[in-house]
Simulated scan of single mutants.
Amino acid sequence: MSSPTILILVREPTADSEALALALARQGAHALIRRPEALTVAIDGRSLTIMDGNGAPLAVDAALGWTSLAARDAGLWLLRALEQAGVPVMNRAAVLDGGQLKPVGSLVLAAHGLPHARTLLAGADADPDMLIATLGLPMVVKPCLGTKGGGVRLITDRTDLVTLLAAAAASRLPLYLQEHVPNSGVDLRIQCVDYRPSYAFRRHAAPGAFVTNLHAGGRAELVAPIPPALAALAMAAARAFDAPIAGVDLIESPDRGPVILEVNMTPGFFTAAVLAGDQRVVIEPAARAAADAIARGLIRMAASRRRGAALGHGTAA
Score class of each variant (00 low, 15 high):
Asp157Ala: 14
Gly105Ile: 13
Leu120Trp: 04
Pro138Lys: 06
Ile299Pro: 07
Arg306Pro: 05
Asp278Gln: 07
Ser47Ala: 15
Leu161Pro: 02
Ala309Phe: 07
Ala117Lys: 01
Ala286Met: 08
Ala117Arg: 06
Ala295Met: 03
Trp77Met: 10
Gly151Phe: 11
Gly99Lys: 02
Gly113Ile: 14
Ala71Glu: 13
Leu311Pro: 01
Val141Leu: 11
Asp278Trp: 03
Val87Asn: 01
Leu164Lys: 08
Ile6Gln: 04
Pro36Val: 09
Ala19Thr: 01
Pro4Ile: 07
Asp160Phe: 12
Leu222Ile: 00
Leu311Tyr: 13
Ala209Gln: 10
Gly257Thr: 05
Ile33Gly: 06
Arg239Asn: 03
Ala70Tyr: 07
Pro88Val: 09
Arg118Ser: 13
Gly98Pro: 09
Arg256Ile: 11
Ala209Arg: 12
Leu24Gly: 03
Asp125Gly: 12
Ala216Met: 12
Ala167Trp: 05
Thr147Glu: 15
Ile6His: 05
Leu145Tyr: 15
Pro225Val: 07
Pro197Ala: 02
Ala169Cys: 08
Val193Lys: 07
Leu78Phe: 05
Ile155Trp: 13
Thr159Leu: 11
Pro244Tyr: 08
Val274Ile: 07
Ala243Phe: 01
Leu48Arg: 14
Ala56Thr: 12
Glu262Trp: 12
Val223Glu: 02
Ala286Phe: 01
Arg72Gln: 12
Asn91Met: 01
Gly45Ile: 11
Val223Gly: 00
Gly113Ala: 13
Ala21Phe: 01
Ile299Asn: 03
Ala15Trp: 14
Asp255Lys: 14
Ala302Pro: 05
Ala25Arg: 14
Gly55Leu: 04
